[in-house]
Amino acid sequence: MPTTDDRNAVTTVIASLIDAWRRHDADAYGAQFTQNATYVTFVGTYYQGRRDIVDSHRTLFAKFLKGTQLADEILDVRFYGPSTAVVTGRGDSYKGSRPKKLTKVQTYTLVREPDGQWRIAAFHNTKRKPLMEAISFKAAPALVPASQK
């Protein structure tokens, strides 16, 4: 049975990820992932392994994401046994003021490794398409998630 300490440890991993992004520290960012983690970006790029995640973020922080911060909102934390957690949230990178609406939906699968540390084993990032959602919901109201009814 997961404890409050487990939940805090899992959410601390996400907070550490955001802090590493704030500092543009690709090594600290990558340290939050397992050695064989998978990472899927919102554009569909698939990275395999911590080294790939670190190297890609080193480049991103120097170029496309230079000067950005990471906004995150945890929507749900669920545990599947004592060593697996799934975190669902919203997020976005930004410059200047934090955006009011976060445009990406993110899923993190975390595992407790043999050293007792929680790390991200898989990450998936999806860009929301609010107009397409609205059209879909209008055409087929049964598609509206229960949480939005």
Rank of each mutant, 00 (worst) to 15 (best):
D72S: 15
R50V: 12
H57M: 14
T107N: 10
A31R: 12
A71W: 03
V86F: 02
D25S: 03
Q32V: 11
G67L: 05
Q117V: 06
T68C: 09
T41N: 02
D52T: 15
H57D: 09
K66H: 15
T34I: 06
Q32M: 13
D72V: 14
K66N: 14
L110A: 11
P141G: 00
R50F: 05
T38Q: 03
L65D: 01
L143F: 12
F79E: 00
D76I: 09
T107D: 01
H124S: 11
I53E: 03
R90T: 08
Y39M: 06
A15C: 03
R112L: 04
A62R: 13
N8H: 04
R78E: 11
T11Q: 01
L143C: 03
R78T: 13
Q106C: 13
R78K: 13
Y39R: 03
G96Q: 02
I120D: 04
Y80D: 07
H124M: 10
Q32D: 10
I74D: 05
M132F: 14
A139K: 08
S136H: 03
N8D: 09
G30D: 12
D5I: 13
M132V: 08
W21D: 11
A15N: 07
A139W: 10
G30K: 11
T84M: 01
V43Q: 12
Q117Y: 04
Q148A: 10
S147G: 00
Q148C: 01
R119I: 08
A121K: 04
T12C: 06
Y39W: 14
S16I: 02
T84K: 00
K129A: 11
A31V: 05
M1H: 12
S93A: 05
A139F: 07
D19K: 09
T3F: 02
T45N: 10
A146F: 05
G81A: 02
Q117T: 07
V111A: 05
K149W: 12
Y94H: 05
W21V: 15
Q32T: 14
K101L: 05
Q32K: 06
D92A: 15
G30I: 14
G67W: 09
Y80K: 00
K63P: 00
A28I: 14
M1T: 13
T4I: 12
P145L: 06
D76K: 15
F79W: 01
D27E: 13
F64I: 13
D76R: 15
L60I: 14
T41A: 01
H24R: 04
R119K: 09
A62E: 05
R22Q: 14
P141T: 05
T12V: 05
S93R: 06
V10R: 00
A20N: 09
F123M: 13
L65N: 04
G67K: 09
S16M: 10
D115V: 06
G67F: 06
Y29V: 09
L131N: 04
K104W: 08
R22V: 07
G67S: 09
S56P: 03
R78C: 10
S56T: 15
D52Q: 15
A20R: 09
V43N: 14
